[in-house]
Design a protein around this nucleic acid. Structure first.
Lengths: 107, 107
DNA sequence: CCAATCAATAACTGTCGAGTTATATGATGT
DNA sequence: ACATCATATAACTCGACAGTTATTGATTGG
């Protein structure tokens, strides 16, 4: 029962973690240190959040010397967009069904 | 720091709760009993999930005799779409590579 | 009125996960 | 080789929350 968007929702549900992801979207490639500097939590906490984001495919890491740079992988958001479109589609199709029914009742 | 999409993400993060919302999108108006029948959890659990969905603005309730009908409020998903668009915007301003994602969002 | 039904609330329990500090791993410069 | 810096992992704590059963409140039919 664990769809791809399942992992996305739970990964992005945490405000601290989502803020990290947003920062990576906004400002691009960042080191763990740079992210920690504004995260409001300890460095290990940031590292754990990054690990979760990585498992969800939302970030990539790149090692450069003793630093690790992380960057956002925006295409990982696709299932989220798909899910939203699907919900909208259900809604629309029921609306169409209703219109269809009303049209039948009119004639 | 609690933005509107913050509540949406955490509300939709729970699989059981999201399944209830999906059901309401797919099949429209449902009673608590009908939702409980397929939720896989107890009736009180369903009621609590519905209360959370309602606080997030994702559902409306309508009392009819001793039953309560719930229905999805799809427009409440707007902040989610906005957030995704914003992330895509950040990304796009730095790269030009997300045709695939944009195609999904356009449909 | 009484019994039954539907939903919500109360009270409680257990689990999960986000945070901490402490430590390990690994790269760099002197 | 050594001291230092950057990140990851370990071990632990604590609170939030999803689930349970039991109960209450409200509505309907006999």
């Amino acid at each position: 029962m664990s769809q791809p968007h399942d992992i996305l929702f739970s990964t992005l549900a945490d405000p601290t973690r989502r803020a990290i992801f947003e920062r990576l979207c906004r400002d691009g490639d960042q080191t763990v240190g740079a992210l920690t500097a504004q995260a409001g939590v300890s460095q290990p906490a940031v590292s754990k959040h990054l690990a979760v984001l990585k498992r969800a495919g939302l970030v990539r890491d790149r090692h450069e010397g003793r630093q690790t740079h992380y960057s956002a992988q925006l295409n990982a958001l696709a299932p989220l967009v798909d899910w939203t479109n699907q919900m909208a589609g259900f809604w629309q199709s029921r609306f169409d069904d209703l219109e269809d029914l009303l049209r039948r009742m009119d004639q």
